[in-house]
Design a binder for these strands. Structure first.
Lengths: 219, 219
DNA sequence: CTTGACAGTGAACAAACATTCATAGAACAT
DNA sequence: ATGTTCTATGAATGTTTGTTCACTGTCAAG
């Protein structure tokens, strides 16, 4: 996808900020005034460009009506640390408590609007978190197959505040699942990295247990 | 505040749902079509009523532009469990680890838009969470004075998913504070229960350590 | 019985708003 | 040199949309 220019990005950011502050979208004339354009058509062109580049969706004819496209997530597969034999990685793995297997969850595209949950994340049954609070989980299923995390792999989960694009261990319906975190405005999505399942299932609440930092590949 | 009628509430719910689904507000004619009104004025009257009752704010002249007023929180002071002497409550208190005092935080009205944080909540320094994961905190300050939680009281914090109106222990700028959780659409607020401080301070992220379930009053 | 609040129809208006057309300079590759 | 793309101006157009006015029926309080 083509990247927006700096001005287009500035306009997009202003629109996002306007929604965040006022809870409704700005009109074209609002944007025009903000950026001191002499013509509404200048804004119009930029909005068309933003839509053509896939980051903004306009609703033709409707006033103050837009949708923000989910941000594109950079491919993390290249940054995954792969276990290739005895070495420091092994020690690091052994140093954290092993808590069990991830029931892998459903390889769907889960939406959670108005996320509030922020809580002591429940651990798998019988497990007890110890300092340094990192733990390992065995992956079951292929919901993250396109992030190069496959069935049988082991992921190292660490506590922390997840950023957009992070792969997180999230608790959905009592099961720990591995998904990529997608922020879109004030909404949060959990995205399975498996193109075979483009479904979208809403969940009421969201509890994140940690961020997947490393992957130990099954050999 | 006067309560909306069932029809007015239905319209308000539809508007909220429309925003949640489409990310922009419906027009009056959208609402008209949804509820099969023969006139736009029927919708107009209901919107005026909703605004008069303080649950909806209209932006005059602007299309598809509204704000939702923060929901009113029911008074929980009557449901607070008060410690009145030796008994089961004492045992319950002794059964949970006592972790320290809440630096009570600032008695302000804190806003957090686009909340994402959902994480292993940091514990007060030197503390270590143990099963059953409940703990007690001593209250300092009078930010929750109107919820009948005063300086010197002890609150029992339990993990769980907080609902709208729950009193939560939240970590703001590294300090644990006691506030009431307010959900407003996709936004989350932390409200101090002290009418002397109607301030509104934005915070970037939000970590909730637990829900205040009981209050042990200082005698 | 009357008054007033409430909920609705129907028509019409005026402002807000997205959209289109014509035009043009600057940057840039062909 | 020349065409293309990007960005912008300026004016005009037509729809969308909030808003108002006049009128009707219902229901409960006084």
């Amino acid at each position: 996808m083509e990247a927006p220019t700096t001005k287009q990005q500035a306009i997009l950011d202003y629109m996002k900020g306007h929604v965040s502050e006022h809870s409704y979208w700005p009109s074209i004339r609002d944007i025009q005034a903000k950026f001191r354009f002499a013509s509404t058509n200048a804004v119009f062109g930029h909005l068309q460009a933003l839509e053509r580049k896939g980051v903004l969706q306009r609703i033709p004819g409707a006033a103050r009506a837009y949708k923000i496209a989910p941000e594109v997530v950079p491919d993390l597969s290249a940054t995954v640390i792969t276990y290739e034999g005895p070495g420091e990685n092994v020690i690091e793995l052994d140093a954290v408590p092993f808590l069990g297997a991830i029931p892998a969850g459903f390889p769907d595209y889960t939406e959670s609007s108005g996320v509030v949950a922020s809580m002591q994340a429940p651990l798998p049954a019988g497990a007890r978190r110890r300092p340094p609070e990192s733990f390992a989980l065995r992956v079951r299923g292929d919901s993250m197959i396109e992030a190069d995390i496959n069935d049988g792999d082991t992921v190292i989960i660490e506590p922390g505040t997840p950023k957009h694009g992070d792969i997180v261990a999230a608790l959905i319906d009592g099961e720990t699942t591995l998904k990529r975190l997608i922020k879109q405005g004030s909404k949060v999505y959990l995205k399975a990295e498996n193109s075979n399942y483009p479904n979208l299932t809403p969940v009421s609440s969201l509890v994140i247990q940690g961020i997947a930092k490393q992957v130990v590949k099954a050999i």
